[in-house]
Computed example of a mutant assay.
Amino acid sequence: MSIKESSTNNENKKTLEYSCSEIYAVNLISGRWILSICYHLKHGKLRFFELKDKINNISERMLTLQLKKMEQEELIIKRVYAEVPVKVEYELTEIGKQLMPVLQQLEIWGKEHKKIKKK
């Protein structure tokens, strides 16, 4: 479900993103699948079905939508090769690669939080 451009919710989101870079960044990578896609692309280029095989329970449609969003946000590059059948590869952009240390810190924080929450 998309948010209406003129909605109060959308206006609030834009205002927060403008005033706070952290909120902008979190909104950019939020959602169930984007971090998982980044995680798998950190090791290098992957084709669509390689990504799909690595990410449990993601539908082809959802993967397509998330890859398009990531491409629009310049987190990934989509390369199409003129071959039969067509070969398409996805890889992180330079700005996408800069996200990797943040993901490592999130992983460390998540592990610590899980430990604390189990107590």
Score class of each variant (00 low, 15 high):
residue 114 K to V: 13
residue 85 P to F: 10
residue 95 I to F: 12
residue 84 V to A: 09
residue 37 I to M: 07
residue 91 E to S: 07
residue 107 E to S: 14
residue 53 D to F: 00
residue 110 G to P: 00
residue 95 I to P: 02
residue 57 N to H: 14
residue 85 P to N: 08
residue 45 K to F: 05
residue 81 Y to C: 00
residue 32 R to E: 13
residue 105 Q to P: 01
residue 68 K to H: 09
residue 45 K to I: 06
residue 65 L to S: 06
residue 82 A to N: 14
residue 77 I to P: 00
residue 73 E to Y: 06
residue 98 Q to V: 00
residue 84 V to M: 13
residue 66 Q to E: 15
residue 52 K to T: 05
residue 78 K to S: 08
residue 22 E to S: 10
residue 78 K to Q: 14
residue 113 H to I: 04
residue 87 K to V: 11
residue 74 E to M: 09
residue 105 Q to M: 10
residue 63 L to V: 02
residue 34 I to C: 11
residue 105 Q to K: 10
residue 26 V to D: 11
residue 103 L to A: 08
residue 48 F to I: 03
residue 77 I to W: 13
residue 71 E to S: 15
residue 81 Y to T: 01
residue 94 E to N: 12
residue 110 G to N: 12
residue 74 E to G: 05
residue 47 R to F: 06
residue 31 G to W: 07
residue 29 I to K: 06
residue 55 I to F: 07
residue 77 I to G: 03
residue 65 L to D: 12
residue 99 L to S: 02
residue 44 G to F: 04
residue 87 K to M: 05
residue 32 R to M: 13
residue 52 K to P: 02
residue 84 V to N: 12
residue 56 N to D: 13
residue 30 S to A: 14
residue 73 E to F: 10
residue 28 L to Y: 05
residue 82 A to S: 09
residue 76 I to K: 06
residue 89 E to D: 12
residue 32 R to S: 13
residue 90 Y to L: 01
residue 95 I to N: 14
residue 101 P to Q: 08
residue 97 K to P: 05
residue 66 Q to I: 12
residue 100 M to Y: 10
residue 108 I to D: 07
residue 73 E to A: 10
residue 87 K to G: 03
residue 48 F to W: 04
residue 100 M to A: 05
residue 106 L to K: 07
residue 84 V to H: 15
residue 42 K to E: 13
residue 26 V to Q: 11
residue 66 Q to D: 06
residue 67 L to V: 00
residue 68 K to S: 07
residue 22 E to G: 15
residue 53 D to H: 11
residue 57 N to E: 12
residue 28 L to N: 09
residue 114 K to R: 13
residue 70 M to Y: 08
residue 100 M to G: 00
residue 99 L to R: 01
residue 27 N to C: 14
residue 102 V to G: 03
residue 37 I to P: 02
residue 23 I to H: 01
residue 78 K to V: 05
residue 86 V to W: 00
residue 86 V to R: 09
residue 100 M to D: 02
residue 68 K to W: 03
residue 29 I to N: 06
residue 92 L to T: 01
residue 33 W to C: 10
residue 25 A to H: 04
residue 59 S to E: 04
residue 78 K to P: 01
residue 29 I to E: 04
residue 97 K to E: 09
residue 93 T to Y: 00
residue 68 K to E: 13
residue 35 L to P: 05
residue 76 I to T: 07
residue 99 L to M: 12
residue 105 Q to C: 04
residue 57 N to K: 09
residue 55 I to A: 15
residue 112 E to V: 07
residue 26 V to T: 11
residue 60 E to V: 03
residue 54 K to C: 03
residue 59 S to F: 06
residue 29 I to T: 15
residue 45 K to P: 02
residue 60 E to A: 06
residue 42 K to W: 01
residue 76 I to E: 06
residue 90 Y to E: 01
residue 41 L to Y: 01
residue 56 N to W: 01
residue 34 I to N: 06
residue 90 Y to F: 15
residue 113 H to Y: 11
residue 93 T to K: 06
residue 102 V to T: 13
residue 45 K to C: 12
residue 70 M to Q: 03
residue 84 V to E: 03
residue 88 V to N: 04
residue 96 G to R: 04
residue 40 H to N: 10
residue 36 S to H: 03
residue 30 S to C: 11
residue 34 I to M: 09
residue 32 R to I: 04
